[in-house]
Structure formats: structure tokens, C-alpha cells
Amino acid sequence: MNVFRLAGDISHLLAIIILLLKIWTSRSCAGISGKSQVMFAITYTARYLDLFTNFISLYNSTMKIIFLGAAYATLYLIYVRFKATYDHNHDTFRVEFLLIPTVILSVLINHDFSPLEILWTFSIYLESVAILPQLFMVSKTGEAESITSHYLFALGSYRALYIINWVYRYYAEGFYDLIAIVAGVVQTVLYCDFFYLYITKGSRANATEMSIEA
């Protein structure tokens, strides 16, 4: 554990809490892509099955349980509790375009051809593109509420901080995991356009909404 990794995890946790609080306090999931959230729930489920096979640390297990719980709580809020506010007319990204290639890729390119390892690999590939329905939705409606923007910024920062952690680990420990690194770079690059807008437009004092051009 190094400071970059910890900062990445905190940023990830912050993103999830921001989203849950936003939906809960506004009693609405307007502007939130349920499809992205379904894919994040699939991601954590596939990746954290090792909760039952591997104990790494109390920190590790606790965070996994929090991420899993929060992912399903978010789905509950979107698809059950505040279903009436779900903006499905704008959440039209075709998820099969993400699911099918990531399943195929995880079977073809993995560290070990075993069920748990393939599921881990699938989760890494799927996570890297899971935000696309959300970004697509924001570009389609042309705006994101500022709180949604904060969520996206925290979520994007998480993998960017992980990249710095991987650079650090390469030099400090000689450790690297090419699958995680390549997917993590792809994931971070997808946020670049958003980061640019967040920093340039989001910093205006009275900005409550930001526009994102497709």
C-alpha cells in the first residue's frame, strides 16, 4: 500500500458515496445512467469473488464489501426505489457492444485460464469501459448537474491515481500487471475530455451545470 493507491481508493469511495447521497437526498436518479451502474455492479461481483478464496488484509476485504454493497444499493435506488425518476429515454447506450467484446477479450488475454482469473480479467476490461453509457448520456443531454460532475471527476481520478501507484510499484517493488495497466490507461483516457471540461468550466464560481459536447 502506498499513498497513491490509498488516494485512489479514497477517491473511488468518495465517488460512490457522492452518487448514493445525490440520489438519496434529491430522491431522484435523473441524469444517472443505470446501465453504467449495472456494469459497475457486474465488475465488482466478478472481481471480488476472491473474498471467499483469498484473504489479503482487513482493509482489502472491508473495501470490497463496501464497494459491492454500495453498487447494489445504487442499483436498488435507480431501479426500485426511485424508478420513476430514472431517465431511461436518454440511457440508450447499447451495452452488448461493451459486454460481448470484454467477455471475448478476457477469455483470450488473461494471466491464467482459470474461472476466477478469467472473471477477474473480465472485471478489469469491463470496468475500463463501464462509464461509457454515463458519458454518452451526458453528451446526449448536453449537460450534467454539478454533483454528477463531481461524481465523474472522483471516479475518473481513482484510476488515474492507480496509474501513478503502478508506476511507483514498478520502481519500488518491480511489480507490474500489464492487463491492469493497459485497461487502467484506457479507462483514464476515456475521462480526459470530461476532466478538461470539469477543470475549465467547472471552476467558474457560479457554474451549477456544465455542458459537454459530444
Partner: peptide
């Protein structure tokens, strides 16, 4: 490189 299949990151 260390390519064991224990993943210690989240």
C-alpha cells in the same frame, strides 16, 4: 515481472 494470480488491489 510478478504475474501471480493473487490480486492485492481493489
Amino acid at each position: 515481472s510478478i504475474q501471480d494470480t493473487t490480486h492485492d488491489e481493489l
